[in-house]
């Protein structure tokens, strides 16, 4: 009796320790920092390190709590920030849709190949994802520049007389985003399509569907979970993207990730940057919660 109890207790302690280690790590380095961002967004900027006023102060025997909502008021009323949020959402939405148009046929094509060549093709989709994103963005800079390859080619072919200005425009941002995030869209759609039950297509054909109507009535609706996963995986990070708009975009297109960066490093207004971050998170809460519930449902 006593041995059973001790080994049970021992197992219980082991379990608690097992849970505690990753839990503690994420609490301290992931969740608590978010609370800090929220707190600092209500603070006031000052000179020195850290460059913000503490929220609380002891005044003799009185605990003073100063919450400064000015940053939020500013973020929510100032045109530059509003525009940056809207631009980010717009660019993320359009590039997600465009990516879907490229990724779906590609994923469908790979899924229709023989299993032996499939794994190679999937591997080829993954390779660019593993190689540095900075490099991939940079490769487009040398292609899209005024004296870059694309313009040289078009000039040589006589299609244009003057070099087109593509780099430092919104078009370049779209190209960069679509290019960089494409594997994230292809893979979930592919894994959905390749695990789809092929007899369902046969059943649809048997019941009178042509190839095309079988696709739209059965294959496509069944692949929607993969499509939605791909969209979530792409849309959310793109909204906060920094590198691509910074390197490929122009000064006239401000995305919110870059705004935060500038606020931090150039203006050194940390409370304001924190407020901008909090508003960004608020915007993304719905898609993130959707993504999480989907992922955890899939795993159970």
């Amino acid at each position: 009796m006593s041995t059973v109890a001790t080994s049970f207790e021992k197992a219980n302690w082991g379990k608690r320790l097992l849970i505690a280690i990753p839990y503690a790590w994420l609490l301290v380095l992931f969740l608590a920092p978010f609370a800090l961002v929220a707190g600092i967004s209500l603070s006031t900027v000052r000179l020195g390190m850290p460059p913000f006023e503490p929220l609380t102060a002891w005044d003799g025997s009185i605990l003073n709590l100063r919450l400064n909502f000015e940053n939020f008021l500013y973020v929510l009323t100032d045109d530059t920030y509003l525009l940056a949020y809207l631009t980010s959402l717009k660019i993320a939405a359009i590039s997600t849709a465009a990516m879907l148009l490229i990724a779906y046929p590609l994923a469908y094509g790979i899924a229709s190949c023989a299993p032996s060549s499939r794994s190679l093709l999937v591997f080829l989709v993954i390779v660019p994802f593993w190689s540095s994103m900075l490099i991939r963005v940079y490769s487009w800079m040398s292609i899209l520049r005024n004296d870059g390859l694309l313009n040289a080619l078009l000039l040589k072919l006589g299609l244009i007389a003057e070099p087109l200005r593509i780099l430092n425009t919104e078009t370049a941002i779209y190209i960069g985003i679509i290019y960089t995030y494409l594997p994230f869209m292809v893979l979930p759609i592919y894994s959905n399509l390749s695990s789809a039950d092929k007899t369902l297509i046969e059943a649809a054909r048997d019941l009178g569907c042509s190839r095309i109507s079988a696709f739209w009535r059965v294959t496509f609706p069944l692949s929607l979970p993969g499509v939605l996963a791909g969209c979530a995986l792409v849309f959310i990070p793109v909204v906060g993207e920094f590198v691509i708009p910074d390197l490929l975009g122009g000064a006239d297109t401000q995305m919110i990730g870059r705004a935060i960066w500038l606020e931090f490093f150039n203006n050194r207004d940390w409370p304001m940057a924190a407020a901008v971050t909090i508003v960004l998170m608020a915007l993304l809460v719905v898609p993130i919660v959707y993504f999480q519930s989907r992922q955890s449902r899939e795993r159970t």
């Binding site: 039950d197 007899t199 369902l200 046969e202 059943a203 649809a204 054909r205 048997d206 019941l207 009178g208 569907c209 042509s210 079988a214 059965v218 609706p221 069944l222």
Partner: peptide, 19 residues
């Protein structure tokens, strides 16, 4: 082709459309 034949099939896995 299958979709124009006046035959219908009951599949071993039933192949019911889950959606």
């Amino acid at each position: 082709p299958a979709h124009r034949r006046p035959t219908n099939m009951m599949f071993q896995s039933y192949a019911l459309f889950p959606h």
